[in-house]
């Protein structure tokens, strides 16, 4: 048996999914361990977007795993295993969220136009005003490049901590889309499908989230 982490990753094909599900049905604990190692923390973070309380989110993910195991005999590989698991997660989390008192309705969770108003990628003060006699809307001074930043610094533990902090500081919907797209490597189609959001909302959330992380990185790297 061969079960490298990548076999359980999102890029795994239908054949890998079928094989993995066969192993799970046969009660192969290593197959299940590989699956939880791959997805559990991602699922837990996603659950906290719907239910704020971490203990409740842990319940939701645990219920999801149970739902996955109980549903294994029904899994037909028409969609990837990952998609199937995350659909169960999102449905479980939504059901649970309805029971909680929420300040933001579920329908507005992923809608950047209702969650907050326009959020510029770069502070407006870094551009000449629209009515400026020269260069309206252009950079007042060029952003300092990062070419001089050595690759080792970008890959350092300190930079990684900074990026983690910057991701954690994002509004939950932006944090999720950026993490799933850029850190987990999901496609836009997968994110839209699993979160049940429009392509436009997905792109707006990704844009705002990435822009904020870039800003944090800029402050850190160039002190501006």
């Amino acid at each position: 048996m061969r079960l490298a982490p990548n076999d359980v990753a999102g890029s795994a094909g239908v054949d890998d999914d079928v094989r993995l599900v066969e192993l799970l049905r046969a009660g192969d604990e290593r197959a299940f361990a590989a699956l939880i190692d791959r997805y559990h923390t991602v699922m837990l973070r996603l659950a906290t977007v719907y239910v704020r309380d971490r203990a409740v989110a842990q319940d939701v993910v645990q219920d999801t795993w149970l739902g996955v195991l109980r549903g294994l005999d029904r899994f037909e590989a028409r969609s990837p295993l990952k998609t199937w698991i995350f659909h169960i997660l999102v449905n479980t989390a939504k059901t649970r969220a309805v029971r909680e008192k929420r300040t933001i309705p579920l329908s507005a969770l992923w809608d950047p136009t209702t969650a907050d108003s326009f959020e510029p990628a770069v502070e407006p003060g870094r551009f000449f005003p629209a009515d400026a006699p020269r260069w309206p809307g252009h950079w007042t001074s060029l952003p300092p490049g990062w070419d001089a930043v050595p690759e080792e610094r970008l890959l350092s533990g300190e930079t990684r901590s900074l990026i983690h902090a910057a991701i954690d500081a994002l509004p939950p919907s932006q944090r999720e889309v950026v993490s799933l797209r850029d850190s987990e490597g999901w496609t836009a189609v997968e994110v839209c499908n699993i979160l049940q959001i429009s392509e436009t909302n997905q792109r707006v959330l990704l844009h705002r989230g990435r822009s904020r992380v870039r800003r944090a990185l800029e402050r850190y790297l160039t002190g501006t």
Binding site: T41, R160, S179, V213
Partner: peptide, 10 residues
């Protein structure tokens, strides 16, 4: 850089 961030382990 975001692509190199790894999820904390279980």
């Amino acid at each position: 850089v975001l692509g190199r961030v790894t999820e904390e382990s279980l």
